[in-house]
Simulated scan of single mutants.
Amino acid sequence: MVKAAAIHLIRSLRQQDILSVVTFSDRAQVLIPASLQLDRGRMETKIRMILPSGGTEIFQGLQAGIAEVRKNFSVERVNHVILLTDGDTYGDEEESMLAAEESANYGIGISGLGIGKDWNDDFLDELASKAGSSSSYIAHPQEIQAFLEEKFKQLAKVFAENLELKVETSPHVELSYIFRLQPNAAHLPLENPLQLGIILRDQPLSLLFEFTVSPSAVIDDVANLLRGSLKFEIPSQALPSQPMRIRVFREVTEIASLEPPSPTLVHALANLNLFRMQERAQEEVSEGKYNEASRRLQHLATHLLSHGERSMAKTVLLEAENLQKQQSFSEEGRKNIKYGTRALLLPAGKGKN
């Protein structure tokens, strides 16, 4: 299925596109070097010759992939690595993270696609977040082609990339949680600067920030929450863009507003609550609180049913029962719940993330 998906994408490449393919197990091999000349027939032949072998050492493949992108790096192009794996790396996690940070500093994005159940989603999420992206879960090999097609279409629609926000919160204000709704829904790590990823031509960048605000933060009926500087690159422009200054604040009054909150915001917060319930259940399992985690999953299933998500609710209930019996998640069930609840935060019609 992976070979068929790769061949399909090769046939859909535009003349201005540059593609490289790197295979890796316990070592990496540049199967198709990056080149401005597209020889589709030769590329397809090399793809058909791929044979599975060895273990999974992601650093070797990632390092080789980044090196291939750098060969033809240009600020006037979208420069990106798509990491596809079906296994858990071993012993090279720290090196991989450093490579991802270096990639981000150079202006190269990284997306992670995990196939099946035997890969570390926390590791792949953290790796991709270093470059402002996220990981996606491919439960069945038959889904690979659709995922890759969607990723290639998205990269072709990038308006701005390498968004980096340096933040400074006001005194008595704590930034406690960040979630990117679109594009590429993901829980973002609380790092400074924040790697926010990309902006598409036909879709805004939407973020949810959660602040803990002390009453003493309110001065003259205004709570200043955050100031920052946003850096970004626009591939269609040769000259660098100037950073934008950002200020986030809220007016504070003693009289509650009669105006209802935005329906979009209410919908996003309701679905984010579902995602955070499974996050907390995973934390409780890691703390040995299996009964609490099982009860939380049962509550999550009830909420999912009220949202019409019957299939996912069934998966959640099975995992709640599994926790009581085995005191652990099944890898397949845990990934289905994590990525399934995250997909609820995607714009309508975008499918599973």
Rank of each mutant, 00 (worst) to 15 (best):
V316E: 04
E331A: 08
F329N: 07
N291A: 04
A320K: 11
E319W: 11
E321L: 12
R296A: 11
L297P: 02
S286A: 14
N322S: 13
A301D: 14
A293C: 12
E284H: 03
V316K: 04
E292N: 07
H303A: 10
E332M: 05
R310L: 12
M312V: 03
E321T: 03
R295A: 05
M312A: 14
Q298L: 15
A293K: 03
H299A: 10
V285Q: 08
E287M: 01
Q298D: 13
Q326N: 13
L317A: 08
S294L: 05
L323W: 06
L317D: 05
L317C: 01
H307A: 09
L318P: 04
E309R: 08
S330Q: 13
Q324M: 13
R295N: 13
L300N: 09
H303V: 09
E309F: 00
E331P: 06
S311G: 03
N322I: 00
Q282Y: 04
E319R: 11
T315F: 01
E284M: 12
E309L: 00
L297H: 12
L317P: 00
H307R: 09
K325E: 11
G308I: 12
Q282I: 04
E287Y: 14
A313Y: 10
Y290L: 11
Q298A: 10
E287L: 11
L297Q: 08
E284W: 15
Q326W: 07
R296D: 13
A301N: 01
V316Q: 10
E321I: 06
V285T: 01
E287W: 12
Y290Q: 00
L297G: 07
R295E: 06
M312T: 02
L323S: 05
F329A: 04
L323T: 01
F329L: 02
H307V: 05
E309W: 00
K289W: 00
A281R: 15
L297V: 07
S294M: 03
A313L: 11
L323Q: 02
G308M: 03
L318I: 01
K289G: 00
S306C: 06
R310Q: 13
Q326C: 14
Q327K: 07
A281H: 13
R334D: 00
A320C: 15
E309A: 11
T315M: 08
L323E: 03
G333M: 05
T315N: 04
E332K: 12
T315G: 09
A313V: 04
